[in-house]
């Protein structure tokens, strides 16, 4: 319990403290109630970051979940090929976030990166430092590259837990590939996919390092997500009060959306 206190409760309470006080210096703290919350809520930068964050999470979930399931279906069931594929798949998961950012920062550059060069060669004007669409495409592609393997591994775990008898029964019934997917594989993967959706949602909603390294939130504020905005506020401008209020609301939003996801998916798998 002491450990949980040290790593979770005390920090959280400190944030709560900050969020309701105006701090001028040590010993000069004034209780000001909900002013910071009001200020953070009115900040247009925060509104923009929030909408971008929602759009980003929506896009990556819409791409990564189906793609991950597809990859899992393609994976060989056993043998060295399967092991090799799993190792290659899992590699991006173990690369430190800022290295991921660094890789993509170079990889997507038109003049020195493979992706940027190829895209420009086939006639797409791609320049993520200047063009908001390119910047978005880079970050989404990076996230897909980075996290689809997690979804794929989870889905693969779900697939492997299906007994062979199910497939034999389907074959006797003359079920087609699609029917097998729809009535056997998908229902069996539901619990792992719930985990995948929850984890991916939480992590994409908290994304900080990768876009920070690649675009630094730019061009302009085109890729300034909530975390980036928060860190700018807390460390850059040292506005502890609003930043703390902002943190708490951020946390609550994640909690709320995750809870909704959790309930919906639980219902779906129960019925």
């Amino acid at each position: 319990m002491a450990l949980v206190a040290f790593s979770a409760v005390i920090p959280l309470m400190t944030v709560v403290n900050y969020s309701v006080q105006d701090i001028f210096g040590p010993g000069q703290r004034y209780f000001i109630g909900v002013d910071w919350f009001r200020e953070a809520l009115r900040d247009p930068e925060v509104h923009g970051a929030f909408l971008r964050q929602l759009a980003f999470s929506g896009i990556v979930l819409a791409i990564e979940i189906p793609l991950g399931v597809a990859v899992a279906l393609l994976l060989p069931k056993a043998g060295w090929k399967s092991s090799l594929a799993i190792v290659i798949l899992a590699l991006p998961l173990l690369i430190p976030f800022n290295v991921v950012g660094t890789i993509w920062q170079v990889y997507a550059r038109p003049e020195i990166g493979f992706l940027g060069r190829v895209l420009n060669d086939i006639g797409i004007d791609f320049n993520y430092t200047g063009d908001a669409v390119s910047a978005w495409a880079t970050i989404v592609l990076m996230d897909v590259w980075h996290w689809t393997p997690l979804v794929a591994l989870l889905a693969f775990a779900g697939l492997r837990s299906i007994p062979d008898a199910y497939y034999q029964a389907a074959r006797i019934d003359g079920a087609g590939r699609l029917a097998v997917f729809r009535f056997i594989e998908l229902p069996k993967m539901k619990s792992v996919l719930t985990i995948a959706v929850l984890l991916r949602f939480m992590d994409s909603f908290m994304i900080y390092t990768e876009p920070f390294v690649v675009t630094g939130g730019g061009p302009g504020s085109a890729t300034t997500f909530l975390s980036i905005r928060l860190v700018n506020m807390a460390v850059g401008q040292f506005d502890l009060g609003p930043a703390a209020a902002f943190s708490l609301m951020y946390f609550l939003v994640i909690l709320l959306i995750s809870y909704v996801f959790y309930t919906i998916l639980q219902r779906a798998s129960a019925s």
Partner: peptide, 28 residues
């Protein structure tokens, strides 16, 4: 960057057969 990937690659190789299981058995 390459050096930071190496320990991860070793760890993956050791647990490659269990990675998938890890989440599958966790309850939601």
């Amino acid at each position: 960057g390459v050096v930071t990937i190496l320990p991860g690659a070793c760890v993956i190789w050791f647990v490659r057969n269990y990675i998938a299981k890890g989440f599958a058995l966790g309850r939601v």
